[in-house]
Simulated assay, not measured.
Amino acid sequence: MRLAFMGTPDFAVPALLALHAAGHEIAAVYSQPPRPAGRGQSVRLSPVHQAAETLGLPVRTPARLRTNADEHAAFRDLNLDAAVVAAYGLILPAAMLDAPRLGCLNIHASLLPRWRGAAPIQAAILAGDSESGVTIMRMDEGLDTGAMLLSDQVALTPTTTATTLHDALAAMGARLIVTTLSQPVGPGQPQPEQGVTYAGRLTREDGRIDWSRDAAALDRQIRALTPWPGTFTTLDGQVLKIGGAALVSAPRSAPPGTILDDALTVACGQGALRITRIQRPGRGMMDADSFLRGQAVAPGTVLGS
């Protein structure tokens, strides 16, 4: 088929590579414009842009689409069979949604209608869901409301992190979109009206740890929000990033946030967490033992104060 591919982050790269390997003609790749990144703020191409250039594919990087009539016309003139969208980051107007012969197909990282929106991977872990997955959806003008074409699921375990789930769903999405396009693309199954949930955009503040919460909920927060936006607490005014933790039995009762032992076990509102990965300002993420060799934290110290 003659396709356009529209995506930006790492999540979308496996699908682009799979569609190219399957022999589809990719007439254009759309991605977010290059932006400053890193400590040096050097301008960087998005992961999809980089992959497209490696494959020798033409790349378009419009900063906006909704009122960009020139871009609407250019997209229409591609004479596409379909467009595949995966975490692109721009909303497609009706003029573009309707242009391809088979419409625009989205690779969405959830089992719709659960977790429509911007952060479905993190939302599934935060909520303690037992499973997640990918849905291939025919796009309409709503927020992830289109008809479903194909889906698959993966179990979530007590050790699932945003990173491991991201990688699993990226590979699953690549497989499902190739399967979808290898057979007649029908109208799809309308989403049920029951069970709709939304996953809003995450901010840095979502990563602040409130030690008065249940330890199991905090464990999910750390697994869901690492590496981005990251979870953090404070110690004597110093912001410490938390990269990993384990649920443990609290050896004794203490106020939430209290360090209980020499192994960075922290009392929570219910239960306790042992911090396993931590980062102080200006340093890299390290295991708790390495951290404690450089900065002693006495039992009885209270985090987040």
Rank of each mutant, 00 (worst) to 15 (best):
V178S: 04
P120M: 05
Q194N: 14
L169D: 06
P158D: 02
Q221M: 12
L165Y: 00
E141C: 07
A199N: 06
T197M: 08
L176Q: 01
V154I: 13
S130R: 14
R220F: 10
T160I: 06
A171R: 15
A174P: 00
D210C: 04
A119D: 01
A217R: 02
D219Y: 03
E193F: 08
Q221G: 03
T145G: 13
T157D: 10
E131R: 15
S130H: 14
L181A: 08
A216W: 02
G133P: 00
A119T: 11
I209D: 03
I121L: 09
S132D: 03
D214R: 04
G195K: 02
D219C: 09
T160N: 04
M172Y: 02
D167Q: 15
D152N: 05
V178L: 04
R213M: 13
T145Y: 01
D219I: 00
P192E: 14
A155N: 11
A216S: 14
L165K: 02
D210L: 09
R175D: 14
Q153L: 01
T164L: 09
L143D: 08
L143H: 06
G117Q: 08
A162C: 07
R138W: 00
G195W: 01
L156F: 01
A174V: 06
L181C: 07
R204P: 06
Q122D: 08
I177S: 04
R201Q: 12
A217N: 02
A215D: 06
M139G: 05
G146A: 04
R175S: 10
T197N: 08
G146Y: 01
Q191N: 03
E141P: 01
I177Q: 05
D214N: 11
T164W: 09
G173C: 09
D144L: 03
I177F: 03
V185R: 08
Q191H: 04
G195P: 12
V196K: 10
A217V: 15
E193H: 11
P192D: 12
T203I: 15
D210W: 09
T159Q: 15
A155Y: 01
M172K: 11
L165D: 04
T179H: 11
A123S: 12
L156H: 00
A155T: 12
Q153K: 13
T135E: 11
V196T: 12
R204A: 14
E193D: 15
E131A: 12
Q189R: 14
E193P: 02
G207M: 01
E131Y: 10
P120C: 07
M148D: 07
S182H: 10
G207W: 06
R208G: 02
I209T: 02
M172R: 10
D214G: 07
D129A: 12
L165E: 03
R201A: 12
G200W: 14
G142H: 08
G117L: 11
T180R: 06
R204C: 07
G142A: 12
